[in-house]
Simulated scan of single mutants.
Amino acid sequence: MSDSLTLEGVHADIAQYHILQGVNLSVPEGSVTVLLGRNGVGKTTTLRTVMGLWQAHRGRILLGGEDITRLPTPRIARAGVGFVPEDMGIFSDLTVAENLTLAAVSGPIDSARLDWLLDAFPPLRTFWGMAAGNLSGGQKQMLSVGRAVIEERRLYLIDEPSKGLAPAIVTTLARALKQLKAQGASILLVEQNFSLARALGDHAVVMDDGRTIWAGPMATLAADAALQERLMGLSMEAHG
Rank of each mutant, 00 (worst) to 15 (best):
D3V: 09
P122H: 07
H203S: 14
V10E: 02
N134I: 01
E151D: 14
S111R: 11
I158A: 00
G80D: 10
R38G: 10
L35G: 05
R175M: 14
T126S: 12
T220M: 12
L124C: 00
V105W: 04
N99P: 05
L177N: 01
P108E: 14
L100H: 06
L7I: 00
V81E: 13
M88E: 12
M1A: 07
V145Y: 00
L114T: 01
A185V: 08
T220S: 11
T101C: 06
V206W: 03
M51F: 13
S195R: 15
R70Y: 12
D93P: 10
S106N: 10
G40M: 02
V34P: 02
Q141S: 11
M218S: 11
A225S: 15
E29T: 15
E29W: 07
R58L: 08
T44P: 09
G129L: 12
A56S: 12
N39M: 13
L117C: 03
R175W: 04
L71I: 00
M232N: 09
A176V: 06
V149I: 13
A226R: 13
A168D: 13
R75E: 14
Q192V: 06
L94W: 06
A112G: 15
V10W: 02
D159F: 03
L63Q: 06
A204F: 04
T212A: 06
I169D: 00
Q139C: 03
Q228F: 01
Q16H: 15
R153S: 09
A222D: 06
H11T: 02
L71H: 04
F91P: 09
D209G: 14
L7K: 00
S26I: 12
E86A: 11
I61P: 00
L35K: 07
L135T: 02
E229V: 13
Q192R: 05
T33L: 02
L53W: 03
G30H: 08
M218Q: 10
A238E: 15
I109W: 08
G129K: 13
G240F: 15
A132D: 04
D208E: 14
L173Q: 13
S235A: 14
H203P: 07
A104K: 10
L157M: 09
E8F: 10
T171W: 09
E152I: 00
A166K: 14
G164P: 07
A12I: 01
S2R: 08
L71C: 03
Q228R: 03
S162Y: 08
I90P: 02
V170L: 07
Q16P: 15
Q21H: 12
E237M: 11
M51E: 06
T49V: 13
A56G: 08
E66F: 05
A238W: 15
V205Y: 01
L200K: 03
S235P: 11
